[in-house]
Design a protein around this nucleic acid. Sequence first.
DNA 1: AGAGGTAGCCAAAGCGCTTTGAGGAATGGG
DNA 2: CCCATTCCTCAAAGCGCTTTGGCTACCTCT
Lengths: 343, 343
Amino acid sequence: MNLKQLSQMLGLSQTTVSRALNGYPEVNRETRERVLKAVRETGYRPNKAAQRLATGKAGSIGLVMPTSPGNSSDVHFSEFLTGLGEEALRHDFHFVLTPADPNDEVGALRRLAASGNVDALFVNYMRGHDPRLEMLKTLSIPFLVHGRSIGSEPDYPFLDLDNEAAFYDATKLLLQLGHRRFALLNGPIYLDFAIRRKNGMEAALAERGLTLDEACTSHTPMTDEQGLFAMERILQMEKEKRPTAVLCSSTVLALGAVRAVNQAGLKLGEDISLIAHDDVLTLLKPESFTVPLTTTRSSLRAAGVRIAERLIGEIKHTETFPSQELWKAELIVRASTGVAPAD
Amino acid sequence: MNLKQLSQMLGLSQTTVSRALNGYPEVNRETRERVLKAVRETGYRPNKAAQRLATGKAGSIGLVMPTSPGNSSDVHFSEFLTGLGEEALRHDFHFVLTPADPNDEVGALRRLAASGNVDALFVNYMRGHDPRLEMLKTLSIPFLVHGRSIGSEPDYPFLDLDNEAAFYDATKLLLQLGHRRFALLNGPIYLDFAIRRKNGMEAALAERGLTLDEACTSHTPMTDEQGLFAMERILQMEKEKRPTAVLCSSTVLALGAVRAVNQAGLKLGEDISLIAHDDVLTLLKPESFTVPLTTTRSSLRAAGVRIAERLIGEIKHTETFPSQELWKAELIVRASTGVAPAD
DNA sequence: AGAGGTAGCCAAAGCGCTTTGAGGAATGGG
DNA sequence: CCCATTCCTCAAAGCGCTTTGGCTACCTCT
């Protein structure tokens, strides 16, 4: 069933039927109702490809799925995706997901844009000096980035968490509790958020004349396994040199780190204080750790909702948003942080 | 840059250029190379919407994302998605993800198919007597289901895990270890896999004249929280009646369950034996639990790869696959299972 | 009554691609 | 030398939709 058949059936022109369906004013009320009734009865659905070809709008936003053989699936990514989906549902939008080799993200993005299948692009997992930015600016479709790219001109639309402030505040808290030796379990250092979190932490330390020991810093994929390894390594240091305060870039890393602490027979919140960044993952609630975790919290999913909202608004030209948003994380104190142990 | 411009640039007709690009034999080798060179230089990419309109093929497979406001993101789903993506990447396919209210999955599926945006459909989270099946059969595009639907005619293409056998075997193992009182922490009972796992477990018990106590059975969303609650409830029973063996439908449930066991001061593998089904989630490795978990294992991600492979093969008409596949889970014994404690 | 609007509808062009049906040029055979 | 054959190329139709630019009939106003 297509427009032609439908309009013949109704004894109307394609034009009129099309207008009736798309809410144009120059259609008689009765006619419109007749059309809508026929649509309901026949189950007619406009062909999206044709619609897209004619209008240039696709009702879809494109994103590159950072996946490659051997690469692990990422809870953070799917939490975010859930948020995107939640908002897209409200506007009858869908996503076009292009899986891409991480080494060819620029290419994948370009192909996606050129395919004419999407109205807007979204990118995340920003790196320092991210090469995708330059490419995106040359494109004619709107885009939005989640995160920022340190080292690039900040002239692109983004939504980011104030990672620097989050880790600055967290460090500050630990300093107030008397801690002097710190460790950081971070994400891969080429990622922008990891760089900024480290910066934030170092800034707070510097205020007290302290520095972050490289030996106590790890930059790894954010899995529980890596968290375990990194923490084990740190706990092997002599007690006098060993950090008493640890910052984790994800509750996932913290999951492993806490296990290491337990296995070493140490008490979280007494021997070792830990603050993790909490993306509000469904699976991993900091409050349901055996010792509830102090966290810097910002929901990834909420970010997804917001990003979809902005992107769709831009496509529909209905709303304008501040082009650059910086969210603050909440610092939530629970039992995993305590006064520094006496040496 | 479109076909018309490109062909004018080359002094060729659109036909010839199109044929050159799509590998038709009736194009001179030199001509073809000239065309390909121009494509490389200009960065020309065919418009997918137009291609789709002309050919009827879209190079994409559609899936409904089970998401709604307030609904939680699901690690199992994203693990699977990763597998799909991995395979799709190899064939330059992409996905169209339609987020849908779980109450309107049939509608979402129909819209997706009618939109003309996808070549094939994929569905999962099958229920008993699943209404989507009937709808899918009326559609003209191929589809594949992950899982099965108990109570429906088994005349549709599927890939499923032999859930019955997996839980039958697991139960059998526990019986051999002397356990007589069992509990089951299962997924929502309307889901097909949950029904079958329960059946498998009950079949093994029945062979010894045992039955599964309803009070020791829970059907919940598969989150760690639910696992914790369910297990806490079970551990409140009097010691003489309390189950000594527990089956979990997911390592995620097990995560909570194990926490409950620990909090009760019981020893896993001694006081309580536990077997979980392991979907090989990146985040949750059964071997890195404090007491490594005995599991029935089957990679969700591998299933994703296989499903994409079959779907894409069907679209391209290149390969035919057995239309129905039943995978076996591996039973892997670790430390969480032990001889039943003497009463 | 005639000018000027307006409401409601339509025919046709166009979006960028593939594919059909046909034609021109070169080659070979009788 | 002519016709058949092969190789390459082309013009044009068509995919299903939106949108432009009329057109007609009916009002309203003076």
